[in-house]
């Protein structure tokens, strides 16, 4: 792959993306339009995250890529290989050893540090999209901080179901200003967004948007006083490492209703195993 620049993108494109990232960091939670490029993987496969990662990577970095919390899911493998090939950077599956982590749908269980960047792949960056399909309208709503529609939606959930019926991509308010889609992470992960020492960057390639959370940003999951936000997970412990407070995947083991629960964060699970926790 010597025909391509370091980390695939040309320097002009990286500069354009870095400018968008700086703007995004300056206005936490605000969606910055950027001239997303066609990447050699399809839209929907993480092209936004890949472009952000390509723009922040340096040759000294150590990259970790996860999908559904796991390093060995096919798309995580594919994206990791892409950067091994185009940037020749070191890679790792260890959360603690990584300087840049690209993720789809999870935040690692292991707390992140100040020397780390977490890059999220985002399908639909607009938290108001399913309430109002028009971009021209939603941009105006954000500008006017007009979030009544979102509160009405959450209220209607409670009126209809007795609970807020959003299990993932649960909307948050950032630094008291912008309502933001945290990408389709389970709401279990929402508390980790707030006051996080790491830089959190969000890339939506097809929708051409970048947004960010600078370190230690206040992030609040939307709720009501009498219906407080609840970070839920399956009420079980991991069958492998015994962890009672990590997010779990449900594995169907037979066709007679048998199932087991395992940590979705494979590095977290393995690390506990090695330390003999189980």
């Amino acid at each position: 792959m010597t025909d391509y620049n370091f980390a695939y993108l040309d320097e002009q494109t990286k500069r354009m993306i870095r400018r968008a990232l700086l703007k995004a960091l300056a206005i936490p939670g605000y969606q910055v339009p950027f001239a997303s490029r066609e990447m050699p993987m399809p839209y929907g496969w993480g092209t936004g995250g890949v472009q952000v990662t390509a723009s922040v990577l340096t040759p000294e970095d150590r990259l970790k890529v996860i999908d559904q919390g796991a390093d060995d899911t096919t798309n995580a493998v594919s994206i990791r290989k892409f950067f091994e090939k185009t940037a020749q950077v070191a890679t790792t599956t260890r959360t603690t050893e990584a300087t840049v982590i690209q993720t789809r749908h999870r935040i690692p269980e292991t707390p992140l540090g100040e020397d780390q960047i977490l890059v999220y792949q985002v399908p639909i960056p607009e938290p108001l999209r399913f309430l109002e399909p028009r971009e021209t309208e939603t941009r105006r709503m954000h500008a006017l901080e007009e979030y009544g529609l979102m509160h009405v939606k959450l209220y209607e959930d409670i009126a209809r179901h007795g609970a807020i019926a959003t299990a993932y991509a649960y909307p948050v308010k950032v630094a008291g200003r912008y309502v933001m889609d945290p990408s389709p992470i389970p709401k279990f992960d929402n508390p980790k967004l707030s006051d996080c020492p790491a830089i959190q960057l969000f890339g939506a390639g097809r929708e051409q948007r970048i947004y960010a959370l600078p370190p230690y940003t206040d992030v609040v999951s939307l709720d009501f006083e009498d219906h407080p936000f609840e970070a839920s997970k399956a009420p079980h412990a991991c069958a492998l490492c015994g962890s009672g407070d990590s997010y779990l995947d449900e594995i169907v083991t037979d066709d007679a209703g048998g199932r087991m629960f395992l940590c979705s964060d494979t590095d977290y699970c393995e690390s506990r195993h090695e330390r003999g926790a189980a």
């Binding site: 798309n75 399908p123 991509a169 997010y247 449900e250």
Partner: peptide
């Protein structure tokens, strides 16, 4: 290119989201 990408991405793993929906 955009449409087919987003349409077909739903065949990628969504265990985590599905699990949270299942619990809900």
């Amino acid at each position: 290119i955009q449409a087919t990408g987003f349409l077909e991405h739903i065949k990628l793993p969504h265990y985590v989201d599905f699990q949270s929906e299942l619990e809900l």
